[in-house]
Amino acid sequence: MPRLTKAGRTRTLLPWRGETMVLMAVGLLPAALYFWYGAHDRLGPDPVNVFERWLGLWAVRFLLAALLVTPLRVVSGISLLRYRRMLGLLAFWYALMHVSVYVALDQQGNLAVLWRDITHRPFLMLGFAAFVLLVPLALTSNDWSIRKLGRRWGRLHQLVYGVAVLVAVHFLLAFKTYNATSVSYAAALTGMVLWRVIFLVRARIRRAGS
């Protein structure tokens, strides 16, 4: 495994302070754009479904991007660590919007249907569980929580690998057949989890050997 020669260095994409705020706003553009289209009947004949899937897809993309930060650093030495929190939070915001559109626009707040969905349908139970697990991660994605929780913060945030597995299966089930899109995203998410497991196991073996 390559040595972490540049691990300590943080690189910035933009020169000014508050760049993560700017990047966060950019990250929210796909949602804003589609919301504007949908509100003006420009998302085609089935707009709620299109919007719901679009938000879910971007939640997956940002989750994957957040999970890629560490492997990228280890493999190439490029550290995007300072953007990881932002990527994780974007994944959460998209997941929140995805769930909100499902509840409010798609099912129009029909509690009977919603209750049945999350108690009877594995497809929706997995997706909902993934969202629920993201909540504590989002709530503790700040400097204060990191200081306050100390080592426990790291353990808590291992939950993201559980989220990745749940999301991978939920995403596969969202289509009537297996297809290039669903399989490649699910494989990428699973790959990140496997990478983490292998990384931890090797670290343990190294420690035991020294």
Partner: peptide
């Protein structure tokens, strides 16, 4: 994977 109790009407116009 979903309820069949209701349906989305295609082309009803926006959100």
């Amino acid at each position: 994977r979903w309820s069949q109790a209701s349906e989305r009407v295609i082309g009803a116009g926006g959100f």
